[in-house]
C-alpha cells in the first residue's frame, strides 16, 4: 500500500516560485491500478516522479508498504532497483540491447545469474506475446511491441509498484488497448500496484481508481465512473485540447 500525506513541491525559477503540488494526500491499495489524470501543468508528472522516487525534493511523507520512502539518492536508487518498475511514454528501451537483454536488465541489476535472467526474461516476453522477437533490437520493433518490451522490463523483477507515464500516448488506439490489457492482466496476476499518468480517457477508464489533479491540488480521488466507450463529444474535446488547459470532465 502506498500512502502519501501532505505532499508539497515547489520549483524556483529566479525570483519566481511555482507551487507544483499543494498538500496532496491519498493512499493506493496493493494491486490497484490507479490513473493519475489532469491537464498539463496540473502536477501529475510531479506527483508521479515523487511516488517513483525520481524526485526527492518534496515536503510531506510517502510510504510504501509501511516504510517511509528514502530521500537519499543512493537509498532511493536501491529501492527503485528492487521495488519499482517504470514504463515511459517513449518506451525508453536501451537501443543497443535486444528485447531479451532489455527485459533482463533489471534482473542483472538485482544480481540474478545469467541463467535466471534469460529464463525469467523469456517468460516475461512470452507473457507479453513477443516470444518470437526476443533477439530483435528496439529499432526493429513497432511502437506497440516496444511498449510491451517495456512492460515486461518493468515487471520482470516482480516490483511492488510500477510507475507508468503516458504509456499509451505514442500508440494507436488498437495497440493502446492491447498494451492496457497486458498491463492490467499482468498487474492482477502478479499483485503489482500501477500508477498510470495519462491523458487518455480509455486508459483512465480501465483503471480501478482515478486521482485527478488540478493546479497542483487534488481535485478528485474516487472510483472510476466513466462513460465507456467515451462519447464523441469527449473525444473531440480531448483531441482539440491535446495539452488540455481545461480539465476534461471525466465523470458523468
Amino acid at each position: 500500500m502506498i500512502v502519501f500525506n501532505h505532499i508539497q513541491r515547489h520549483y524556483q525559477f529566479g525570483n519566481q516560485t511555482v507551487q507544483a503540488l499543494s498538500d496532496v494526500s491519498g493512499e493506493i491499495q496493493t494491486g490497484e491500478m490507479v490513473a493519475l489524470c489532469g491537464p498539463s501543468g496540473s502536477g501529475k508528472s510531479t506527483l508521479l516522479n515523487i511516488l517513483g522516487l525520481l524526485d526527492m525534493q518534496y515536503q510531506g511523507e510517502v510510504s510504501l508498504d509501511g516504510s517511509a520512502l528514502p530521500k537519499q539518492a543512493k537509498h532511493a536508487a536501491m529501492l527503485r532497483r528492487t521495488q519499482l518498475g517504470f514504463i515511459f511514454q517513449r518506451f525508453n528501451l536501451i537501443p543497443v540491447m535486444s528485447a531479451l537483454e532489455n527485459v533482463a536488465y533489471p534482473l542483472l541489476l538485482n544480481g540474478f545469474d545469467k541463467k535466471q535472467q534469460r529464463y525469467k526474461a523469456e517468460q516475461m516476453l512470452d507473457w507479453v506475446g513477443l516470444s518470437d522477437f526476443i533477439h530483435h533490437r528496439p529499432d526493429h520493433l513497432s511502437g506497440g511491441q516496444q511498449q510491451r518490451v517495456a512492460i515486461a522490463r518493468a515487471l520482470v523483477h516482480k516490483p511492488s509498484l510500477v510507475i507508468a507515464d503516458e504509456p499509451t500516448a505514442s500508440l494507436d488506439s488498437k495497440t493502446a488497448n492491447l498494451v492496457v490489457d497486458i498491463m492490467k492482466n499482468l498487474g492482477q496476476e502478479m499483485g503489482t500496484t500501477f500508477i498510470v499518468a495519462t491523458h487518455d480517457i480509455r486508459m483512465a477508464s480501465r483503471c480501478d481508481r482515478t486521482i485527478e489533479l488540478l493546479d497542483g491540488k487534488l481535485n478528485r480521488f474516487d472510483n472510476n465512473q466513466f462513460d465507456f466507450p467515451p462519447s464523441e463529444a469527449h473525444l473531440r474535446e480531448a483531441q482539440n485540447k491535446p495539452n488540455g488547459r481545461e480539465v476534461i470532465s471525466w465523470a458523468n
Binding site: M78, R81, P95, L109, R153
Partner: peptide, 14 residues
C-alpha cells in the same frame, strides 16, 4: 542523456 535518465530510473547508481 535520456538513456542515462532511464538507467538511473531503473536503479543504476551514478
Amino acid at each position: 542523456t535520456r538513456e542515462i535518465g532511464t538507467l538511473s530510473a531503473l536503479g543504476n547508481l551514478p
